[in-house]
Design a protein around this nucleic acid. Sequence first.
DNA 1: AATATATACATAATTTTCTTATGTATAAGA
DNA 2: TCTTATACATAAGAAAATTATGTATATATT
Lengths: 110, 110
Amino acid sequence: MSNSKLYKGSLTTIILKLLNEHDKMYGYEITQKVKALTKGELKITEGALYPALHKLEAEGLLDVEVAKVDNRLRKYYKLTETGTKETVNKLEELAEYIKTMQALVNPKLA
Amino acid sequence: MSNSKLYKGSLTTIILKLLNEHDKMYGYEITQKVKALTKGELKITEGALYPALHKLEAEGLLDVEVAKVDNRLRKYYKLTETGTKETVNKLEELAEYIKTMQALVNPKLA
DNA sequence: AATATATACATAATTTTCTTATGTATAAGA
DNA sequence: TCTTATACATAAGAAAATTATGTATATATT
């Protein structure tokens, strides 16, 4: 992630959530999707994305399937069963984090 | 920060915001305040807090004042002028981050 | 009196997660 | 022809935590 001094640790959650919605995606597609959804505010860098995908795969949360489209390589990732469960956890964690930060930063609304 | 795999990078924002509200605080007090405000969900560790305070001081965002209470040392921190300005930035950044994450994670509401 | 817990600071080693830089390769557009 | 877009990858370094220690005083418990 770049261009936004973003809070580290959220990239995994973003990846899992997108795969939860789109069934299968490849890396480059994820970067474009994030850019589109955030109107260019958030740009995922390759240096962050690819290692993150490899790690999720190694942890058994993602499965890979290689394809060749227009003579170019694509690696399609999809959630495993474990990955789907972990997505729920990560999303809850994020919601919890946002609530906690709001309690700290805007105690009146908490 | 511990006990919540928290998104790195938010500790500074938390510190600045608390000092913005409470004028002056010492390290241990900050850990207790955060614990209280988040009902124990967020525990700031000393290994994260003290280096963060030292860094903010080195950057000129905080001033320190040493005091002795009950024969024990306390280091009171308070915002400098620059620190107050930076607090505004950090809070805006956090609000922006939360908005961005919601656009990604909960696109219907965005 | 002895021991554990709370208060209050600090740092070092390690890990996680990024950024930045670089590399390879094909396709499409100017 | 040259640049941009597509598509993967890794390595070096930085930032920000976690975990483990260490020092010291005060208070509460047994």
